[in-house]
Amino acid sequence: MKKILILLTLVALFFSACQKKDDTTKSNETINGVSITNPMKIDKNNQSITILAKVNGKYLTENTRHAVVFKDGKFGDKPVFIALANQLDFYKAMIEIGGVAGNNMTKQNATKTKVEGQKVNVSVTWNGAPKSYDINEVISDSNKLPIDMRFGGNEENSKKFNTGCIACLDSCAVGIISNHTYTFGAVEKRSEVVFHGNASVLPQDGTLIAVTFKL
């Protein structure tokens, strides 16, 4: 009994000590103008949005259809990059910088329709990175096809389902931005493609990164 209580106390202390350390080391970090206190930067002149995110080490080896998802969304634990900015704020920011949404995806047509909308260039950088990497360099497609991100829109579905999805890797009726290259179901149902983060380029799990979306 005593042994177990001592063990549980030690575990609790160890976890709480480590958690404090992790938060302290990251709270002051600023990358490309975004930080924990200010996780989204809108640049109207440059027509770009930068958001703060964390690398999710799980999906550097596992397959996923989620590129960027808000941490508090239903799928907040499923993307390669866990965003610290809300998906609905991101949608508003996309409209603010002049983005034209496709809004052509529905649940009914999803498996046969490719997402439309204005093209969006997605790039990623972090403190200590030699350059800003294009999304095609940091997320690998097993078919070697380019990731072609489009501003799908889907504001209503995003509110309704609250998945937190900002960028999906196949055409999506919920994600704000998604990949025109594949229709919905390519990853999960038809196994046409395998996506995961590029471990040889990306920093280790938990590293804060800045993801820039440019029209």
Binding site: V11, F14, C18, Q19, G57, K58, T61, K71, D205, G206
Partner: peptide, 28 residues
Amino acid sequence: MDLIYYIIRNFYLSGISIFTIKIVFLSI
């Protein structure tokens, strides 16, 4: 092998590093 630690982390331990989770889990 490493997926074990990510599975445990997803149980409301998102602020904790994988290294810490690995050490604590293997100790227990």
